[in-house]
Every structure is written in C-alpha cells, then in structure tokens.
Amino acid sequence: MKNLPTTCPSCSGKLAVKRLYCENCKTEVEGLYPLPVLASLSQEDQEFILEFIKASGSLKEMAAILKVSYPTVRNRLDDVIVKLKQDKKTK
C-alpha cells in the first residue's frame, strides 16, 4: 500500500486535498479540503491509534496485544499526543 503524502516534496509545507475520485461512478470532485489530523501521523502511529481504539482505550489491553509493558504503551501514546499537538501548533 502506498503511503499518503502529507508534506510537499518541494517546500515541506502541509499538503491539502484538491481532487477526490469515486471509484464506482468515476465522478471527480474538486475543491480544497484539509487532510485529517491523523493522516499527518506515520503509518505505524496510525496503526497504533487504531489498535488503541479497538482496545477501548485500555493501555493494559494494548500492552497485552503488543506484548510490551504498560509504561511502554503509555510512552508511545504520549509520543503520538506530542506529535498531534505539534501538528496543531504548526496549523
């Protein structure tokens, strides 16, 4: 699966969505849509957040799923929160 580019390869600025395409009826929609906040995270972080939601936000359950300790999961979550806060600040 291709990674969704979120920053401009030329100036490193934030990318936005300009065109959307329907795979069913081939309709194309043009406009200017900001990328979702979570899209700015790495694939790995996005998977982590997804697992976290599936685990009902339980750090203990996450630790058991990932076979790591509780503080490791909590630190990882803290790192993601910091990234999201930094992303919000740059916006």
Binding site: K67, V68, S69, Y70, P71, T72
Partner: peptide
C-alpha cells in the same frame, strides 16, 4: 527489559 516487563510482575 522494561520495554517488555514492568509493574507487579517486575
């Protein structure tokens, strides 16, 4: 090892 083990078990 604390990446894998912590809390009451440790």
């Amino acid at each position: 090892p604390f990446v894998y083990i912590a809390g009451a078990q440790a």
